Computed example of a mutant assay.
Amino acid sequence: MHGRSVLVRGGVAVASAAVALTMAAPAALADDGAARGRVVESAGTGGLGVNFEGGKHASTVLFTLKLSDGSKLKMYCVQVEVGMRTDQDMIERPWAKYPDTASPFNKNNEKINWVLHNGYPAAAVKALEGTLGKKDVKLNGGLSVEEAVTATQAAVWHFSDGKNLDRAKPLRGGGAAEAADVLALYDYLTGKDNAGIGKQPKPTLDIGPAKADGATGTRIGPFSIATSGDITELTSKLPEGVKVTDADGKAIKAADVKDGTKVYVDVPKDAKDGSGTFSLKVSGHLDTGRLFVGENYAKVPAQSLIVAESEKTSVAANVTASWKQGGTPATSEAPATTAPGGAKSGGGDELANTGASATMPLIIGGSLLGVGALMVLLVRRRRSAA
Rank of each mutant, 00 (worst) to 15 (best):
V78G: 07
Q79Y: 02
V80R: 12
E81K: 13
V82T: 15
G83I: 08
G83D: 13
M84Q: 14
R85G: 01
R85V: 08
R85L: 03
T86Q: 12
D87S: 12
D87R: 10
Q88F: 08
D89Q: 13
M90G: 07
E92P: 00
E92M: 14
R93S: 13
R93A: 14
P94C: 09
P94L: 11
W95R: 03
Y98W: 13
P99W: 13
P99L: 12
T101E: 15
S103C: 09
S103K: 02
F105P: 10
N106I: 11
K107H: 13
N109I: 13
E110A: 15
I112Y: 02
I112D: 00
I112R: 00
V115S: 02
H117Q: 15
H117P: 07
N118R: 07
G119L: 00
G119P: 03
G119T: 07
Y120Q: 05
P121Q: 07
A124R: 14
A124K: 15
V125I: 13
A127N: 08
A127P: 03
L128I: 05
L128Y: 09
L128G: 02
L128R: 01
E129V: 00
L132G: 09
K134E: 15
K135W: 05
K135P: 03
K135A: 10
K138Y: 04
G141A: 08
G142E: 08
L143G: 03
S144R: 13
V145R: 15
V145Q: 14
V145H: 10
V149E: 07
T150P: 05
A151G: 05
A151F: 03
Q153I: 03
A154G: 04
A154M: 06
A155C: 06
H158Y: 14
S160Y: 03
D161V: 07
G162W: 01
K163I: 03
K163L: 08
L165K: 05
D166P: 01
L171Y: 06
R172F: 09
G173Y: 08
G173F: 12
G173W: 11
G174E: 01
G175A: 01
A179L: 02
A179R: 04
A180V: 04
A180C: 00
D181I: 08
V182M: 01
L185Y: 01
L185S: 00
Y186W: 11
D187Q: 09
D187T: 09
Y188C: 08
Y188W: 12
Y188D: 10
T190M: 11
K192W: 11
K192Y: 13
D193P: 07
G196A: 00
G196P: 04
G198H: 15
G198E: 13
K199E: 15
K199G: 10
Q200N: 12
